[in-house]
Design a protein around this nucleic acid. Structure first.
Lengths: 226, 226
DNA sequence: AACGATTGTCACAGAACTGTCATGCAACCG
DNA sequence: CGGTTGCATGACAGTTCTGTGACAATCGTT
């Protein structure tokens, strides 16, 4: 699941710079320089966040912000406003109009990215990079949910911990001993063969949708995911 | 509904200024100049937000931020960091450590207030009197009413607080311990099993209309809404 | 003080989960 | 190819965890 971003920026050079940076961060970016078009795009595409310059064509940024907040389908989208004007009154007005953050030019793209990430952590925890993925499998540690190809997969507590352990170490072969200490705990007196059984159960659960086996058995060494 | 604020600020003059301004805005303010004490206060009082100076006694602000994020009791509290250092690297580091905003001195108190309000709009919509919704369920924090599919549902005080707590954290799995501190208060000596019983009562109340169960049990972890 | 509503705790039943074992198959080795 | 080692699987009994009804204590009102 990729976060979609709408950038509303008038200045071609800055727009290009922003698009480049955010795409490099893995965002799916749409860009426009026009306020009216921004409203249409926001309603159609339902982006996960909007970067909005104060000075743009047709409609002032603050008015776009206000209208986004008023329309039910966009009322909750996070908005970061950009401006060349450093006036305190403007910043406060922007924030009070419903912007989530207000960044003054010149700014560092990395800081803007960090600020967006901070906001997405709140509004879309699943998009903030906490979700663990491999191929069509995703695990959300906050919601305690696992999906394969979009379909929810119910897992028991041990299966869940085991899968999370693997997803945090993708591609790496883990011995049964490592898995016992990592998943069951240092002080557990579990038979190493028990790992086999949990692996089997996890495999069965992950394959109810019919996909290929994601867990690789490495003979006389252990198991790995992917 | 009054928002509680923890201000962690070393400089007496600035601390006094901030306390004055935020109390004038209607916040219930606690203030300390010490990092260790800040962590204790945050755990005990469960404030709705923390204003955290980078340079404070005993523990650097960034370390306080990190520890707040790590402890389950305070992992979710919004944090605004303050600093005299305008370095881009610091700002990015602060935001990536888990701060929600990062304000450089000198700043205007009004802007800080506006930034805090912007964050609280996201994290505690109920404080602003905004109706909380999920699917066909809505909770009006002002009128203290809950409806499901338009029909009013009578709830006891504890059930109401529990539901509001869930609605402010949709989808998130909350452990019984987190629920006890969040709903009953840090100083309550409630059995964790009691949570089960209130969950059952809340479920029964929400399902009188016959809809599906909105509360999900996550075995060995806790409960979540949606 | 009396009353009903609300709440915390407990005991118990049922459900879900887990570790272990026996067995059979597959991979490896000379 | 026969022997050996390692892994997968199904069964199962024990354990852990959750849902529920009952009940007494507490709270808030009248």
């Amino acid at each position: 699941m990729v976060a979609r971003l709408l950038i509303v920026e008038d200045d071609p050079a800055l727009a290009e710079l922003l698009v480049w940076h955010f795409e490099a961060e893995g965002y799916a970016v749409t860009q426009t320089s026009d306020g009216e078009e921004a409203l249409l795009l926001a309603a159609e595409e339902a982006p996960d966040a909007v970067i909005l310059d104060w000075m743009i064509e047709n409609v002032p940024g603050i008015e776009v912000c206000r209208r986004l907040r008023r329309a039910p389908e966009t009322a909750n989208v996070p908005i970061i406003m950009l401006t060349a004007r450093g006036e305190e009154e403007d910043r406060i007005r922007g924030l009070e109009t419903g912007a989530d953050d207000y960044v003054t030019k010149p700014f560092s793209p990395r800081e803007l990215i960090a600020r967006l990430a901070a906001i997405l952590r709140r509004t879309r925890p699943a998009l903030a990079g906490k979700t663990l993925r491999i191929e069509d499998l995703e695990l959300d540690p906050v919601a305690h949910r696992v999906r394969r190809a979009g379909q929810e997969i119910p897992l028991g507590p041990t299966e869940f911990r085991l899968l999370q352990h693997f997803l945090e170490r993708p591609g790496r072969v883990l011995s049964r001993g490592q898995l016992v200490t990592g998943v069951w705990g240092h002080d557990s007196d579990i038979e190493e063969r028990t790992v086999d059984v949990q692996i089997k159960r996890l495999r069965a659960a992950l394959n109810i949708t019919g996909g290929k086996d994601l867990i690789r058995t490495v003979r006389s060494a252990g198991y790995s995911l992917g």
